[in-house]
Amino acid sequence: MTLPQPPFGSAGEHQLQQQLGTADRAARFYDQQVRPHLTAEMQEFIGRQAMVFLATADSHGECDASFRAGPPGFVHVIDDRTLAYPEFRGNGVLASAGNMIENPHLGMLFVDFTHHHVGLHVNGVAHLYRDQDLRSIHPGLPTDTVPGRSPELWVHLTVEEAYIHCSKYIPHLVPAPRPTGRDAARPQDSDYFTKPRTAHW
């Protein structure tokens, strides 16, 4: 007999919950913490965040983890079921965006390392837009303040589920000022993991 699929969680999750005896605890978590939209508190939390971790996979299930950062609110809350963030010029590989072309499912993890030490998972379906195309639909998108910089693409996420990442193992980090000059001992980014050097730990 096939059991009905609960509204949240994958088949693999529920299989392991049955095997490890955590199904009741997981059911309480789904019921109390997982939402099919962004609550007002979640929207406010996202608006304060200056970084987000991304999880994508291509059509074969090959995974990629990445990171985006910007001024607080660079991930823009359009409404309780919609987010958007800009993709700027990078190394030209476009690994995350390329995966979204093949497989639009996107996982986002926002973590507050400095104040409340809590995280927020947001999962959904992503679509890519040119800047002018998304602005024609959502004219309230923020404009980047760096002179001459503009998004190559926007990632538009339709939210499917959002839930807390508990604070138990989130470390406290103190923001450090960004160096004003290039550290002479630090290699160029393109050489950092490819050329031997003397370690300075």
Rank of each mutant, 00 (worst) to 15 (best):
P4W: 02
Q5I: 01
P6D: 05
G12W: 02
L16K: 12
Q17Y: 03
Q17G: 02
G21C: 02
T22L: 09
A23R: 11
D24W: 00
R28V: 11
D31R: 13
D31Q: 12
V34N: 05
R35T: 07
H37N: 08
T39H: 10
E41C: 10
M42C: 11
Q43H: 09
I46G: 07
A50N: 13
F53I: 09
T56N: 03
T56W: 03
D58M: 02
D58P: 05
S59K: 11
H60L: 12
G61I: 01
C63S: 14
D64Y: 08
D64C: 04
A65K: 04
F67A: 00
R68F: 00
A69M: 07
A69Y: 11
G73S: 04
F74P: 01
V75L: 04
V77M: 08
D80M: 09
T82D: 04
L83R: 04
P86Y: 04
R89Y: 06
R89N: 08
L94R: 10
L94G: 02
A97V: 15
I101N: 00
E102C: 03
N103F: 00
L106N: 01
L106I: 07
V111C: 08
V111Q: 04
H115A: 14
L120R: 12
N123Y: 11
H127M: 10
Y129M: 07
Y129V: 08
R130F: 13
R130E: 14
R135K: 09
S136F: 04
H138R: 07
L141H: 07
P142A: 04
T145F: 09
V146Q: 14
P151A: 06
A162T: 01
P171F: 00
P171K: 00
H172L: 13
R178L: 13
R178A: 12
R178V: 14
T180E: 09
D189P: 15
S190M: 09
F193M: 13
T194E: 01
K195S: 09
R197S: 10
T198D: 15
W201A: 08
